[in-house]
């Protein structure tokens, strides 16, 4: 038991040391990198390390007869939450959101500290000691706090009032409500009833079950099923259309949406908002195929105002592609990401 605790303390201690020295720049900040794709797992794992470490350290300190005061446990935990959110999580979280998390964790710390009368007293005691200033040490701290507090609060309000040129925050609707129908190359498509003419089975009938069985696998790498290779010279029907769609994608779309359809194309770095990441479960996986058809055909310029049409560089693809080509690209995007289009029912 003790061995496990020592191990936990070691893991937690090393983790804290690593985090602090990365934050302070003692070692390069990318020493332990968050890697996209593994990121959620990685963060859960890291937090588990920290929790194990904290538990073990506080237990061992207690067992060694020098328990860490409740007061400092609470404060340190709260500081840790702030540091982790501010310096570790990537992409960075805006201050307003961090403030929210910070408040929630402050409340949590208070609940933890005041879960029973005795703990609450222990937590309160250091504060009261300083207020009462019975010893020289406490008096010094009180004096220091009395002087520093107005300076810190005044300074903070000065900094926040000083005119700064931070980028204005503009919130954009990513998936605006689609129109009922859209007219592309002279033909009207009703979004509720239109179907992708290339999502067909071997008899040439619309068949989502059939195509769903042939998309890439939803595991690391998202590789094609070994018996469903669009590049097989014998590939026909659905798989052949997937290949044709892929050719169009890689002649037109990858410049922004990237070779892996993750929105990291060659030109993506220059644009704001960055191009959509189709491998994210929040984009095409959430949408109907006809919605994608409308978005692709009409592009950024065809968006309603809440989606910021002025800032989107997404071309109205009807200017570059035929209707057939657009449907094939949509087909390819679902194949390559391994998602099913949502249906209307």
């Amino acid at each position: 038991m003790k061995g496990i605790l020592y191990l936990g303390a070691l893991v937690g201690g090393v983790a804290v040391l690593l985090l602090v020295s990365m934050v302070l720049g003692i070692i390069p900040p990318e020493t332990v990198r968050l890697v996209e794709g593994y990121m959620p797992m990685q963060m859960v794992f890291e937090l588990a390390c920290f929790v194990a470490g904290f538990t073990a350290i506080s237990y061992l300190l207690g067992a060694a007869g020098t328990p860490m005061p409740r007061f400092w446990q609470g404060i340190l935990f709260w500081v840790f939450v702030w540091v982790y959110l501010k310096f570790r999580v990537y992409p960075p979280i805006p201050f307003s959101v961090r403030a929210m998390y910070g408040t929630v964790s402050l409340v949590a710390v208070f609940m933890w500290m005041s879960s029973n009368e005795e703990d609450w007293k222990k937590f309160r005691q250091p504060i009261l000691n300083v207020l009462d200033a019975q010893t020289g040490f406490h008096r010094a701290i009180r004096t220091l706090a009395l002087i520093l507090l107005p300076i810190i609060i005044g300074g903070f309000s000065f900094l926040s009032m000083k005119p700064s040129s931070e980028e204005p925050i503009e919130l954009r609707t990513v998936h605006p409500a689609p129109p009922a129908s859209t007219k592309v190359h002279g033909k009207t498509y009703v979004l509720q009833t239109s179907q992708n003419p290339y999502r067909v089975n071997s008899e040439g009938k619309y068949d989502q079950e059939f195509s769903n069985a042939r998309i890439v696998e939803q595991s690391m790498g998202r590789l094609m099923k070994s018996d469903a290779n669009p590049w097989d010279p014998k590939a026909e029907g659905y798989l052949k259309y997937v290949r044709e769609g892929g050719e169009i994608f890689f002649q037109n779309c990858h410049f922004c949406h990237g070779d892996n359809l993750n929105g990291r194309g060659l030109h993506a770095f220059a644009f704001n908002p960055i191009p959509a990441n189709f491998t994210d479960p929040g984009t095409i996986a959430q949408l109907q195929e006809t919605f994608i058809f409308w978005r692709v055909s009409k592009g950024g310029i065809g968006l309603p105002n809440e989606a910021f049409p002025w800032a989107s560089v997404m071309p109205p693809w009807e200017q570059h592609l035929t209707v057939d080509e657009i449907w094939k690209v949509v087909l390819f995007e679902y194949w390559h990401t391994g998602y099913y289009p949502r249906t209307w029912d």
């Binding site: 005044g154 309000s157 000065f158 009032m161 005119p163 204005p168 560089v313």
Partner: peptide, 28 residues
């Protein structure tokens, strides 16, 4: 082509910015 950027003509700092924090400090 670039994305939208913002030009921002930095104004000289107004006097209130110095006064209010002082008032707040005294309040504390």
């Amino acid at each position: 082509v670039s994305a939208f950027y913002y030009t921002f003509l930095q104004p000289p700092i107004p006097r209130e910015v110095y006064i209010y924090p002082l008032v707040i400090g005294v309040g504390v």
